[in-house]
């Protein structure tokens, strides 16, 4: 893998790729990395979702990539422009950890699991099957999605490297 075809996805960001390239996002904690893949047209997309729902947004112009309920539709739309079809798409999820354990967990502390739930709900709405996931627990993850093979590589400090 050369660095030329590495496509970075930042925090609260999304990106798509066609045929070649590796989509990468680093340091997923409570955030969720969602990847969508249409294996026939080799169109891939990745979103780094930070919050479950845009209902709580208090910003003027919403950053669509930040919220689960807006990022997934936007990602699908961007992929369709590259020739993907929604009913061929398959999803993979990683992240949504609970980094810190507290007694008396409030909603903010449960943000990881809530992000995962919200992503799954959106995927269900579009009828996109979840092919694999590595979510929850209490560690950070860096993910790389290969746009040719559809393989998602997950790295973490404690668990090493894993492919799903």
């Amino acid at each position: 893998m050369s660095l030329d075809n590495l496509i970075k996805v930042g925090m609260a960001d999304l990106n798509v790729a066609h045929h070649t390239g590796v989509l990468k996002t680093t340091g997923l904690g409570s955030c969720v990395g969602v990847t969508l893949f249409d294996s026939r047209t080799k169109v891939a997309g990745m979103a780094h979702v930070m919050l479950p729902s845009s209902d709580i947004a208090r910003e003027g112009t919403i950053n669509l990539a930040k919220y689960a309920d807006t990022a997934i539709p936007e990602l699908i739309a961007r992929m369709e422009k590259l020739g993907a079809t929604v009913n061929r798409m398959e999803a993979k999820l990683a992240g949504g950890a609970q980094m810190f354990a507290f007694a008396g967990n409030n909603d903010t502390m449960r943000i990881g699991p809530r992000n995962v739930e919200s992503c799954k709900e959106m995927l269900k709405k579009y009828g996109i099957p979840i092919k694999a996931e590595d979510t929850g627990a209490n560690f950070g993850r860096t993910i790389e999605f290969n746009c040719e093979s559809g393989v998602l590589v997950i790295r973490s400090v404690q668990q090493g490297v894993k492919e799903i």
Partner: peptide, 14 residues
């Protein structure tokens, strides 16, 4: 926590 800075700090940015 001992982990990636991104994973940890994002918690404080919600």
């Amino acid at each position: 926590a001992i982990d990636m800075a991104g994973a940890i700090l994002s918690y404080g940015l919600l």
